[in-house]
């Protein structure tokens, strides 16, 4: 996919997303803002998953765990009366990074389908932990009384402000992945995906590079979690169930894995599609399911690949 097309698509998406709050208020559909706030936050997680899945060939089926870890860090701190975002958010990122470092160090010793299974296993462990600890709500989840406060800096309770803060973070996430994918570091990660043995023979300690990418992706996932907890004022185990991880995977592939802007397009498309279908019929998943199957079968670079001019017939 050409850089110019990606740039055009990215700019177009960004402008469209930035126009959501005025459009929602002009059209008198406040729900639109709620939906798109969620979409923007989930897109951060998709972009981060793409860094390891699309560029690194690490098929994680447990990426939603970072949304959960980020969310629960904020929720648990709020539960204990710590409402300052300057404490909550860095800690949410730090805990996510630490979890990614420890589990990633183990996961990356495996390959292929085993990697899928072990990321799933670690995510399930945390899932059962959140279900089991009754002090923080267990199955029922944990309500967050107050959103993270940043003193007088920004007021996250304001819906429009919150939306633009989320959008700014999404933009930052896209830029980070963009920079990484074109850096020396990113090239090594991509090379290790294409042919790990050759990269090692060239003298690159690919394990360390891949682990670093894994930790960066996990940290960004944690950020999405902290934002999501603030949007819904609530965290529950469902946030990190393995089906959520599956959804993230679908969004990345739908948009086009291994392109920077693809996951954003995929997230918007998937979540809007969900919303539209659920408006048509209560049984919308019976349509969505076969669509996902079809998408997997004809997988040709997703939305981004579909928009690109065909190079070879």
């Amino acid at each position: 996919m050409s850089t110019r097309l990606q740039f055009a698509l990215g700019a177009g998406l960004l402008i469209a997303l930035a126009a959501i709050p005025p459009v929602a208020s002009l059209a008198g559909i406040p729900f639109l803002l709620t939906l798109f706030t969620r979409i923007v936050i989930v897109a951060i997680a998709s972009v981060s998953l793409n860094l390891i899945l699309g560029y690194g060939g690490m098929y994680s089926l447990g990426h939603a765990v970072y949304i959960g870890i980020g969310g629960y860090t904020v929720g648990i701190l709020a539960f204990h009366g710590v409402h300052s975002g300057l404490v909550q958010w860095p800690l949410a990122l730090a805990v996510s990074a630490l979890f990614a470092l420890v589990t990633g160090a183990l996961c990356l010793r495996t390959r292929g389908v085993y990697f899928i299974m072990i990321t799933l296993a670690f995510a399930q462990m945390v899932y059962f932990l959140t279900v089991g600890v009754a002090k923080y709500g267990g199955d029922d989840g944990l309500t967050i009384a107050r959103r993270s406060s940043f003193g007088g800096l920004v007021n996250l309770a304001d819906r429009t402000t919150f939306y633009y803060v989320s959008l700014a973070f999404l933009l930052a996430a896209v830029l980070v992945v963009w920079r990484i994918s074109r850096s020396h570091f990113g090239m090594v990660v991509r090379g290790a995906c294409a042919n790990d043995r050759r990269m090692q023979a060239l003298g690159f300690p690919t394990y360390r590079y891949r682990l670093a990418a894994y930790v960066i992706a996990g940290t960004m996932g944690g950020l999405a979690g902290a934002l999501l907890a603030n949007q819904t004022d609530f965290v529950n185990p469902e946030m990190l169930s393995w089906t959520r991880s599956g959804d993230l995977m679908i969004m990345v592939i739908l948009g086009g894995s291994g392109s920077v802007i693809g996951p954003v397009a995929g997230t918007v498309a998937y979540m809007v599609l969900e919303e539209v279908l659920s408006g048509i019929t209560e049984h919308w998943q019976i349509i969505l399911g076969p669509l996902v199957v079809l998408m997997a079968l004809v997988r040709q670079g997703g939305i981004v690949g579909w928009l690109s001019p065909k190079r070879h017939a």
Binding site: I250, I286, V293, M295
Partner: peptide, 16 residues
């Protein structure tokens, strides 16, 4: 990855 996606889609379908 294709297996995971396709069979995940099947889960959605069967549940519904």
């Amino acid at each position: 990855l294709v297996h995971v996606l396709a069979t995940f889609g099947l889960i959605l379908f069967f549940n519904e």
